[in-house]
């Protein structure tokens, strides 16, 4: 199959725009980035099948578009709707509780970072070594 330039460009731009939004801390912005990325991925999948007449048997004599990518994308679109609803509720909740919708740093990860800075183990290996160290 020969690639379609319009698709290739649109996919690239949707990915780039999505990624630049996803890499921020505001949850609504992250969500918008995810939606753009999702659209890009959907087009990427769609591009895998050939274009053509709607895949409805008997509707047209022309060659049909490949239905398989369409089936997958349909599922993806509706799942994105569910995810959007959930993340929006999360963003609102975050705003209601803390006055902003920013994703905070993970406390547990920071604890591990401090352990790494002090060159210590987590102590979860439960060996005598740590028992003695404590």
């Amino acid at each position: 199959m020969t690639p379609n330039l319009v698709y290739v460009v649109v996919i690239g731009v949707l990915f780039a725009a999505g990624v630049s939004m996803v890499l921020e801390r505001s949850l609504t912005r992250v969500l918008m980035g995810m939606i753009l990325l999702g659209n890009g991925v959907n087009l990427l999948i769609l591009l895998g099948g050939n274009a053509g007449a709607p895949p409805i048997v008997g509707a047209s004599d022309a060659e049909m578009a490949d239905p398989l990518p369409q089936i997958m994308i349909l599922t993806a679109i509706v799942i994105t709707l569910g995810m959007t609803a959930f993340l929006l509720a999360l963003a609102y909740r975050s705003w209601a509780m803390s006055g902003h919708d920013e994703v905070q740093d993970d406390v547990e990860d920071q604890r591990i970072m401090r352990l790494a800075e002090r060159d210590e183990g987590s102590g979860t290996d439960d060996t005598d070594h740590h028992e003695a160290a404590r």
């Binding site: 996919i11 690239g12 949707l14 990915f15 780039a16 630049s20 890499l23 990427l44």
Partner: peptide, 11 residues
């Protein structure tokens, strides 16, 4: 930069 690179790779 990262966004542009990801877009390029995706394309």
């Amino acid at each position: 930069t990262l966004a542009a690179a990801t877009g390029l790779v995706a394309a």
